[in-house]
Design a protein around this nucleic acid. Sequence first.
DNA 1: TAATTAATATACCAATCGGTATATATTATA
DNA 2: TATAATATATACCGATTGGTATATTAATTA
Lengths: 196, 196
Amino acid sequence: MSKAEKTRQFIIEKTSPIFNTKGYAGTSLNDIMSATGLTKGSIYGNFKNKDEVALLAFDHNFGKIASYIREKIAVHSRIIDKLLVYPETYRNFLNIPFLKSGCPILNTSTEADDTHPMLRKKATKALNSWQLSLEKHIQIGIEKKEIKAETNALEFSIILMSIIEGAVMQAKVTGSSTVLNITMDFLEKMIRDIAQ
Amino acid sequence: MSKAEKTRQFIIEKTSPIFNTKGYAGTSLNDIMSATGLTKGSIYGNFKNKDEVALLAFDHNFGKIASYIREKIAVHSRIIDKLLVYPETYRNFLNIPFLKSGCPILNTSTEADDTHPMLRKKATKALNSWQLSLEKHIQIGIEKKEIKAETNALEFSIILMSIIEGAVMQAKVTGSSTVLNITMDFLEKMIRDIAQ
DNA sequence: TAATTAATATACCAATCGGTATATATTATA
DNA sequence: TATAATATATACCGATTGGTATATTAATTA
């Protein structure tokens, strides 16, 4: 890893929470400079423009939560327990340090859907990969006879994602975990209901 | 209605879709000027700053969808039919002209939760009024024996809202109605399930 | 160690940001 | 119709925006 590559990584790590809280339009180069302690020359020596930093910051933010969930899922062997990781995790959303700045998919989607095609594409792909991961787990669960055969994997995963994202939005803006507790209780029941 | 009051209304009507698409940080005074055809002097003669326009634009956007739903609900007499207005409406979210710019609560919440206390407060209040309205309908439904007595009005309304907001986020960023159809089918079943 | 390359800092650019003071229209009132 | 009050336009303000050219420093290689 060259010095430049280290600096690139450093810049992305330091700025990704800023992009997630303030958004693309709300994050300025001054924000990037003061977060990294670097000057404009150093930033533009490593990235071609603000866009490139923002896109990589999104990848970083999404990658972080994706691997966090992936590791928690890997611990369990039964599919139902793997799925239960979601309500368990998002119930504590407001208290998970690196999620303080919010869900990157939610934040990026709502800002970029009408304004930033490249960020929009990133968010869409992230949603799709999450959905496919869920669907796969459910399908495996059906094959292993741990999940009812009549379960519609696509539908179930989409509903799970919608509940989580809608609840996170409300919890973040109100600052209260009430919505998360109510919805994650419900999601937990939904998951246990498809158990064989 | 004085001339100034007319102009104020005119400015808010013309700029509210812009604030909803581009966000607070992403909407500039030049955007406001070109949307209204007015000059800076005229805008600052009627509003004290950009904040005031943004806050009223949010009220306008939320008021529009709230009254749209309210009118549709008023048509029905049975509570279940009133509740079914939500899945019916949000199923076509992407095709309702004045909702093209997205859900104001969703957009404002995700941008303002960490950046703009006043807008954040507006979004929180809007969520609360929506939730209370739903809860009231359900309680009336229970009293009228149209809804099962064991239904938890708070839980049900929160879950309904989460599903809708999560689905709208996904539909807007992907540009596809698939998620809306799947989730609104599910919501419809949920509503019919609490019918007495 | 000297020369070369890579990485960072400095100083600047035009354009745009939100906002204001003042001049000019426009409207309402006497 | 003359006057007063309101409303809009013009012209400007300093600060900040994203971005660049060049100078300087640090790291690597010969």
